[in-house]
Design a protein around this nucleic acid. Structure first.
Length: 204
DNA sequence: CTGCCGATATACT
DNA sequence: GTATATCGGCAGC
């Protein structure tokens, strides 16, 4: 069990993304296995926050690889990405879903606040906003180093390999760049969000 | 299960 | 003003 090294991230996000499947995302005393991701390729990708250049929000994407880019979405939810490629090239991999591994009750407490019913295990980390809520990731984790764990957040390799043949599909919630097949997930895993999490549905 | 709606920060027209 | 890398509640099936 060791942190994924910096060199892992210093590549095109569309190559890093499928390799992140089955890695372990750790935040404090909570952890989950990454089962769904999307690649965003900066200035080459009209679906990327970085397509039109650097802003206050996306500055972390332009920094060195192996750091966490966290942004606020729809004025409601946080979403977390692993920054890829060398400094100045704004590639990133959106962490879309985890299968909870450790700290389930902390996750459930974080996810159930202000809700009618306690959240089921399957829904703790199924979706990018839910993933951040379950792990307690917010603005204060933007820029965190995933290799050194300077803010208690790491991506670890426990020897569990990525799927030999991941499910591949189009990215969720975009209009610009919607045609690019840069969404990857672990086949058959029930913690995957959207159509790929429901076998024999469109999107496969 | 599906579809619609509201919440509302950030970036852009 | 409009769009967005989302989610939860509710209506209806």
């Amino acid at each position: 069990m060791h942190p994924v090294p910096r060199s892992f991230y210093r590549r095109d996000a569309s190559l890093v993304a499928p390799d992140l499947l089955n890695k372990v995302l750790v935040a404090g005393n909570r952890a989950g296995r990454v089962v769904e991701v999307e690649a965003y390729r900066g200035s080459d990708d009209p679906g990327s926050h970085a397509f039109r250049g650097k802003t206050g929000r996306n500055a972390t994407m332009f920094g060195p690889p192996g750091h966490l880019y966290v942004y606020f979405s729809y004025g409601v939810h946080w979403c977390a990405n692993a920054v890829c490629e060398r400094e100045g090239v704004a590639h990133a991999v959106l962490l879309r879903a985890i299968a909870p591994v450790f700290g389930l009750e902390e996750m459930r407490a974080a996810r159930s606040r202000g809700q009618k019913h306690p959240v089921a295990d399957r829904d703790l980390g199924r979706g990018p906003g839910r993933l951040c809520q379950a792990l307690g990731l917010t603005r204060e984790h933007d820029g965190a180093d995933l290799v050194t764990g300077d803010r208690g957040v790491w991506i670890m390799d426990d020897g569990h390999r990525p799927p030999a043949i991941p499910d591949v599909g189009i990215r969720v919630g975009l209009s610009a760049g919607a045609d690019r097949p840069w969404r990857y997930s672990v086949p058959g895993d029930r913690h995957v969000s959207g159509p790929l999490g429901r076998p024999d549905r469109p999107g496969r």
